[in-house]
Amino acid sequence: MGFLRKYGCIIIFLSLWELLSRTGIINPIFFPPFTVVLATIYKMTLTGEMVIHVRLSLMRALVGFFLATLMGVPLGLMLGTWFKSFYKFTELPLEVLSQINPFLLFHILILFMGIGEAPKITIVFWTCLWPITFSTMNGASSVNKNLIKAGRAFGLGSFGLLTKIVLPAASPLIFAGLRLGLGYSMFMLVAAEMMGASSGLGFLTLNSQESFQLNKMYAAVVVIAFLGLLLDFIIYMIGRKYFLLANEGYVTVGEN
């Protein structure tokens, strides 16, 4: 019952879409019924067309995201702990860099990297990097001072402090950054694929729109929306299990 109360609206929305389109109240050529869209997805999966695009898009998004995590988390940790005073120097440059629009970058990266996978992965990387870096920095710098003092008292060196205390204590905020970054990665990837690609879900959407295969376009749109929700759900579950989401006590939120 609780499930119905919470998600019933989505079912109502989908059935309303189906109903309005079937009865012709909204034009079924422009808005094919939801079941037709599902059938199209099924058909495209059987022919393998959808599988190719989904695999490529997911690969690009996830590789870019992992690279951004690999760079953003250590960078944020460094700026939040060891190089705290250095942060004042880098605040403005980081702000300027984070304002460099990934699409702008796309046009410039093509000059250096060609039109293969590299520029697409790079712009996903660039987009994810900033939320991850900034929230890691935020988390690392606001670790409860008493925890650090306790760690010192037990004889931890600066590296030990970083890995044993700062990293776990900052993990809720790091995780928030990762979730935001993963959300952005799909976001930007679809646009990048719309602008210059010959494969991927963004390309599929734009290509089927331009060739007026609206069933296919809706299929791609539904799959993109579904993938976005799925990725968000997966990272949310991982976070709840491993990142101490509930345990905000390690980070000073209130008084210090």
Binding site: F187, M194, L201, A220, V221, I224, A225
Partner: peptide, 12 residues
């Protein structure tokens, strides 16, 4: 769900 939906795929 609406707020998570990618704005680009809404563009068409």
């Amino acid at each position: 769900v609406f707020s998570i939906i990618n704005p680009y795929c809404l563009f068409p």
